[in-house]
Design a protein around this nucleic acid. Structure first.
Lengths: 156, 156
DNA sequence: CTAGATGGTTGATGTCTTCAAGCAATAGGT
DNA sequence: ACCTATTGCTTGAAGACATCAACCATCTAG
């Protein structure tokens, strides 16, 4: 819906799709959105001296998670998480805690400083996504709803 | 600033958003969408024996681009591109061509095989984003429009 | 023509990524 | 209880990526 409303609109329908067909274009747009989001996120993480993966890992730790579940959420090998958590732990942003129920499991949880880092990054990313201000509250709600359906919790 | 709106709000404010507030939740949803998209993209690139960065680089080469502009589009150091293009070139997916106008510039362009790889990955990513099928044509168009406004071409 | 800016490469260092191998602890079947 | 998987995590090796500083080649401007 932009500057090309057809002249022949006699129906009550949205009358015709925007402009160019939306088959591939939507995918391109998704790619752009994803790239823009991560660019912003990585930049804000970098301001706190963190890499993208470190930032993503911290952001997942609203509540403690085992190494394994972190690996699944981050879609990478478990051995990878060992190194990432090692580095976060060295910086005092995170600590490991052996699960009393199953002593194989190590739960990772944020330290005070880790929580501050998460809040800081979140706030900055949010503030940096200025494009969202171009949408009305209604439109934002609509966008969230659409994304929610395309990428549900257990997204693929 | 969050869950402490005073009960004494007698103003004509937007009275309250739909259900759960959409301030942070939209950001979370964007994060999920971006993660899901890249997870899918990386998996499909991997099927062609390519890394995420290699796949992203190839996908940018609908038309030839200089090393420098690739670096800007991928938001990384130029020296990084040297290595990535080296590896793509070794596999015969890409080749460098010195610009006749300015002999400092090297334009990178897809080989035949490179184009096939791009088409293959694109098709599989598209097919893999099954969530899109849950939207009507109208909704897809709406989603594209919203994303277009939040993340325009020169997105930040 | 000299000084400076720009495009690209190289090398060093640290982080991420994957795989194979290994150890510790748990779960299941007998 | 016992033996055998299975599961959770770590380690080590090899490759890819990221960032920085230094470098050469080429172009641009004065």
């Amino acid at each position: 819906m932009s500057s090309n409303l057809p002249y022949t609109s006699t129906m009550t329908e949205p009358t015709v799709l925007p402009a160019a067909a939306t088959p591939d274009r939507l995918m391109d747009q998704l790619a752009r959105a994803a790239a823009a989001y991560y660019r912003q996120f990585a930049a804000m993480a970098a301001e706190s001296g963190l890499t993208l993966m470190q930032g993503k890992t911290l952001s997942l730790l609203r509540e403690p998670k085992s190494m394994r579940s972190l690996a699944e959420l981050l879609a990478c090998d478990a051995s990878n998480i060992t190194g990432i958590v090692d580095r976060l732990e060295t910086r005092g942003l995170v600590r490991r805690e052996v699960s009393p129920a199953d002593r194989r499991i190590k739960n990772v949880l944020l330290t005070e400083e880790g929580e501050r880092a998460v809040r800081r990054i979140r706030a900055r990313v949010s503030a940096g996504l200025t494009g969202l201000e171009r949408l009305s509250a209604e439109e934002r709600s609509s966008l969230q709803d659409l994304l929610d359906r395309v990428f549900p919790d257990a997204a693929g």
